[in-house]
Every structure is written in C-alpha cells, then in structure tokens.
Design a protein around this nucleic acid. Sequence first.
DNA 1: AAGGGATGTTAAACTAGGTTAATAGGCTCT
DNA 2: AGAGCCTATTAACCTAGTTTAACATCCCTT
Lengths: 194, 194
Amino acid sequence: MNIQPLFDYIARYVALTIEEQELLLANVNRRRYLKGQYIVQQGDICQFENFVLSGCVKSFYIDPEGHEHIAMFAIENWWVTDLGSFIKQRPADYNVLCLENTELVQFHHKKLEELYQKIPSLERFFRIIIQNAFVASQDRIVQSMSVPARERYLAFRQKYPQIERRVPQYMVASYLGITKEFLSKIRSQLIHEQ
Amino acid sequence: MNIQPLFDYIARYVALTIEEQELLLANVNRRRYLKGQYIVQQGDICQFENFVLSGCVKSFYIDPEGHEHIAMFAIENWWVTDLGSFIKQRPADYNVLCLENTELVQFHHKKLEELYQKIPSLERFFRIIIQNAFVASQDRIVQSMSVPARERYLAFRQKYPQIERRVPQYMVASYLGITKEFLSKIRSQLIHEQ
DNA sequence: AAGGGATGTTAAACTAGGTTAATAGGCTCT
DNA sequence: AGAGCCTATTAACCTAGTTTAACATCCCTT
C-alpha cells in the first residue's frame, strides 16, 4: 500500500522535511477495508482521521425514522471521519461505510495531537484543509436554500463526475437532500428536454 | 474599546505568553461600525477576519433573483468574515452587515499569516475553532435535510435565545431556509396548540 | 439458467412550504 | 399628531418535492 499520495497531498499546502515525513510515517496506520464494512458506526468513539488512498466511502446519518442522509462522499485524496466525535471524543452521530474496497491512512486521535506538537507544519496543514472544507460546507448550506434540486443535481454532476459514476443514483439523491424518485424524474426531464 | 474578551476567548483553547499577547495586540485593528453599515460587501476582496466584541451582524448571500439568504449571525465572542474570500483573496460571495452598532477586532489577512509564523499557538487556536465551526456546519446541512422547519425553529430558539431576541423574525426565517410567512404560520400553530 | 437482491423508473395522490396580496401594528422622524 | 417605513399576521391559491406502490432491469450467485 503506497502512502506517497498522502505526502503529495500534504506537499500541496506545506513542506515537510524528510525527518518530519518519517516521524509522520511512524505514527500512522495503514488499513484496508472491504466493500460494505464500516469505518465508523453511529455510537462509536471515533479514533481516526482517515485519508483515502483508494476506494470510495460515504458518511451518513440515520434519523429517528430510520431514513439515511448522506453528509458526504470521499474518494482518493479525500479525508473522512466523524469529526465531531473525533475531536471531542464523544459518540459518533454519523456512520462511515465503504462503497468499494478501500485503503486508508489513519491518524489516531492521540498520536495526531502529539504530531501537532512535534510538527507545526502539520497543524498548519490541517488548519488550511479544514478551512477549505468549512468554506465548502457553508456554500452547500446556502445552495440548499437558494438553488432548486434540478440545478443542484447539475452542479453536482459537473463538480464530481467521478463520484457520480461510482455511486448508485439513490445515494446521489440522498446527498442532494431529495428522494430517489424525484431525482429519477429530474433525470428523465433532462433527457426528454433536448 | 476593551479587547480583553478576545484574550479570554483565546485562553479557552490555548495559552499565549504575555509577549505573544502583546505581539498580537500590535497586529490587530479595532473598529466600530454603525447599524446598517457593511463590514463586507459581495464583490470585495475580504481583508479581515473579525471577532465581535459587541453588537450583532448577519452574513448573507443575495441570489440571482435578488433574494437574501442568511448564512449566519454573529454576536459577542463570535467570528465573522467571508472566509472563502479571506483565505483565497478572491471576490466575496457574501455580505456582512451590522444589525446593531458593532465593535470588532480585525485580523488583517497578511498580518495573520505573519502571526501564524511567530505564534504557533495562534495557528493551533484557529485550527481548533474552525474545526468546531465545520462540525456545526455539517450538522446544519444534515438537519436541513432531516428535520422539518418547525423543529428547526424550535431548535434554533433553544440554541440561540439571545439571537432570537435581537434580530427580526424574518431574518430568523431566512436563516432557517423558509419564508417569513411560513415562520409566522408555524409560530401561530405553536401558540394555538397548548 | 433461474432466482433473488439491489437499483432505477413511472405515475397518482398528497403535503410541506412558497407566493401573492391585503391588513395592521409599531417605530421614528419631523 | 400624522406620515412613512419596517415588521408581523392571515388567508387563498400554487408548486416543488414526497409517498406509495407497481413494475422493469441488472447483476450476482448457485
């Protein structure tokens, strides 16, 4: 399992010395999951921040009526965890499930805290990527308020074509906050339109 | 204008030395705005990350049809900016407008970058608060998908009673992603119910 | 090759929430 | 004290999106 993509990804934001890279390497786990396995389950105390080397996962919430709501997908070069559970070390509200066989680099909560002390650049790196994630998240809130489902679907398609190809349609619908039936209707409208 | 609330706020997450506090103090602006003034306008390159010492502001997006969508409110001890614009130094998508006379501590983009280098704890501090903001933002997305407007209103009321008292109802409606008429209907239902 | 689960479609009936418009109360300013 | 704006309410009508249910399709497995 080649960890190089992680270093390449980090190098886009900060420069780590060789020693820092080695220290980091000594303090992460690599792990394979099979399609259908859970990386995090609602109720767990989430131990890891995960970087996806290969594969595809979804993070989702099951509401009291038993309906699933997909918070995000993650594929190669994305990060995924239940961040609330990870940082506060409290039971997870979300599940993270593999949609394909998946390879991860896992940062254990406690070891990451230690790494932050030893490698200030790493803390900088996480500050930057979380900032970016927060901006995207805010935009998604405003989009869900101001943009109708059809346009949101078109935007999703444009922004994440790789994901649309890899996950079933009903999960895309859930991510967009609509039912699979309604997404199906939107798609048939789009087809018959031109 | 007393800046102590900022130091108290920071001290909840990291410990700054006296020298670090002085360095910080020498590199921030304090500024007063009047009710109705803009802190950020759509199209500006946003120069500042702002900490609210007193007052109340809203951050909002105007969609192509001219409808306003409130992304967040900020009162005492909150942070507000157009973060996307601030970090990428690109034109702002959002506006930030004072709903009351407001006092801010402003961190200039360039000076903040310098402060990060000189005060690693400050970068740690921002990493932590942005992490928290991101978790809250993700939860809001999932709530908007899984919880009907009425319950979202009740949750808002419970979570931010100070804000509900200080801002007009139609802005609460906008924040919740519903029309003012529908919020009014929900409220009258709640009243006639018990 | 047949059976079963997971995925996608269609359509009819329904509902949460939006739109429009009229009304009214409460500020603030002169 | 009246003019004017900002804020809230109510009600009739409308629509984007949901629910239910039936049916079609595509794998995957034995």
